[in-house]
Design a protein around this nucleic acid. Structure first.
Length: 482
RNA sequence: GGCCCCUUCGUCUAGCGGUUAGGACGUCGCCCUCUCACGGCGAAAACACGGGUUCGAUUCCGUAGGGGUCACCA
């Protein structure tokens, strides 16, 4: 369906979207998706994507939180246009609009006290009916007010009729105006409320499309009251459903990782994987699953954003992450993994070791679905003898193993050249002579070389470790001569 | 509780009155194979329920279930 306001628009109106997080912690995974959708929509239409930090709640806003949000945005490469705005810089403008509304008779000074409000709520509670503020100051003439008493400025909300939003995601949503009460625009200390601030800022910034979480849909009706009273153009709204945890409730701390920083720093997720995952959570483009940034910008639209909330699925994110790890360059992955490896082995990696890690990447990559697994799979390269051996590897080194390893050692020692092909011939030769399957020989060899029961292909391991180190590790597990 | 929104495989989704209801993750089986992965092939798996319109409904209405929101927070 067409939005009448849009079709009435003449000229090439530039699309302007925004992401307006409140800096009370990290960049929330849900916020990241909201930011992503806004970014995509703006880029898709050649418009602007703005960032505005909603820091008017000074008690809860911190610089660290602001930094965390900017950091997360940069990591996901969601670049914004112009500077990062701070809502707190505009409070006098907000107050100005509140007074303009007052002058227009669209708002009024309300001298109700906290006690009166509390009493009203208690009464509503007792009568089991919803509480709506009904201020007796609404229709008073201004001179009746007690000049020195503290007051708030409330919007004179319409009481008849209904307010309608043609939401790009939710469709037509209507609410009876009787449901809306006179919300506060300016607090008794003169500071603006969120409801006023967003509307004023969005208008001043020229925001054309408000794409945000579903949890703001109810707010939109009240915000529209301000917009109409000021005679400003209504933005196009798109309220996207929230991301839920596996249990179906709004994503929160108890669901584990909610900040994008923990996906990067604790779960070893690549930004392109999270980008792709978040994009597909609540939006689809036919059967496409692996979607590049370029295609995302080319394809993104609001029409295909789903109307129902979606559950966060770590398994699918990891699958995507595995895909992007396999796609990533060996050098980049080595750089990323080195940090984890260094904490695993308790020391820094040398330049040579970083080069070795890069060389090993083609064998390591397909075996990891996050950077942690990638790093753990690489540690055998950097361990020092005698190797620590895990339980399963220890089992592989029992019985006939030392005897077989002695033969392997002899065969490998005899190699004229240290190549995977020759090593394979040698090891196969040992298994044939011993009359056992290759696995019977390869597994003890793997345990001796890596201390683990799983690793990259054993002949690749031999090459990566090199002749000297390989032979020494095998020798450590051979039959001990008496 | 009032108001608002939602409902296709376990999960993310495609579908826009007629399809053997498609894909992906996950699960299971097989293949590949020196282990684990990767990769390949295949399987099980969904339109919440009840009505109504229609020759026909995953589109309409109720019910149920889920979610969101109800501050001098944002």
């Amino acid at each position: 369906m067409e939005n009448p306001r849009l079709s009435a628009t003449t000229g090439p109106a530039e699309v302007i979207t925004r992401f307006a997080p409140s800096p009370t912690g990290f960049l929330h995974i849900g916020g990241a998706r909201t930011a992503l959708f806004n970014w995509l929509f703006a880029r898709r239409h050649g418009g602007k994507f703005l960032l505005r930090i909603e820091d008017t709640d000074k008690a809860r806003s911190t610089q660290a939180a602001i930094d965390a949000i900017l950091d997360g945005m940069k990591w996901l490469e969601l670049d914004w246009d112009r500077e990062a705005y701070h809502q707190s810089h505009f409070i006098s403008r907000h107050a100005q609009v509140a007074h303009e509304l007052l002058a227009r008779g669209a708002a009024y000074r309300c001298y109700m006290t906290q006690e009166e409000l509390a009493a009203g709520r208690a009464e509503a509670e007792r009568e089991r009916r919803p509480f709506k503020v009904a201020s007796r100051w609404r229709d008073c003439s201004p001179d009746m007010a007690t000049p020195d008493a503290p007051f708030v400025i409330r919007l004179k909300a319409p009481r008849e009729g209904e307010t309608v939003i043609e939401d790009k995601v939710q469709g037509r949503v209507a609410v009876q105006n009787g449901e809306l009460d006179d919300m506060i625009l300016l607090r008794s200390d003169g500071t603006p409320t969120y409801m006023l601030a967003v509307v004023v800022d969005d208008h001043d910034m020229g925001v054309t499309h408000v794409i945000r979480g579903d949890d703001h849909l109810n707010n939109a009706f009240r915000q529209l009251g301000i917009i109409k009273a000021m005679g400003w153009p209504e933005p196009v709204y798109a309220h996207v459903p929230l991301i839920h945890g596996p249990d179906g409730a709004k994503m929160s701390k108890r669901h584990g990782a909610v900040g994008v920083d923990s996906y990067r720093d604790e779960l070893g997720v690549l930004p392109e994987a999270l980008f792709n995952y978040l994009l597909r959570l609540g939006w689809g483009h036919g059967d496409e699953e692996i979607i590049s940034r370029e295609d995302a910008v080319r394809w993104f639209d609001l029409d295909h954003v789903g109307r129902s909330p979606s559950r966060f699925d770590m398994k699918k994110l990891e699958n995507l992450n595995g895909h992007y790890i396999r796609e990533a360059s060996d050098g980049r992955l080595a750089g990323l993994a080195s940090t984890w490896i260094e904490t695993l082995i308790g020391r820094r990696l040398s330049t040579d070791e970083l080069a070795l890690l890069t060389r090993a990447m083609p064998e390591l990559k397909p075996r990891a679905k996050n950077l942690i697994e990638l790093s753990e799979g690489a540690t055998f390269l950097f361990k020092t003898r005698p190797l620590d051996v895990d339980e399963r590897a220890a089992g592989l080194l029992e019985g006939e193993a030392p005897h077989l390893l002695t033969q392997i050692h002899a065969a490998l020692c005899a190699l004229p050249e240290w190549t995977a092909e020759l090593a394979e011939q040698a090891v196969r030769g040992v298994s044939e002579r011993a009359g056992v399957k290759l696995g019977q020989v390869a597994q003890p060899l793997r345990a001796a070389l890596t201390g683990r029961a799983t690793s990259p292909g054993i002949f690749d391991v031999l090459i990566l470790l090199g002749r000297e180190e390989s032979l020494a590790r095998v020798a450590d597990r051979m039959t001990k001569e008496q």
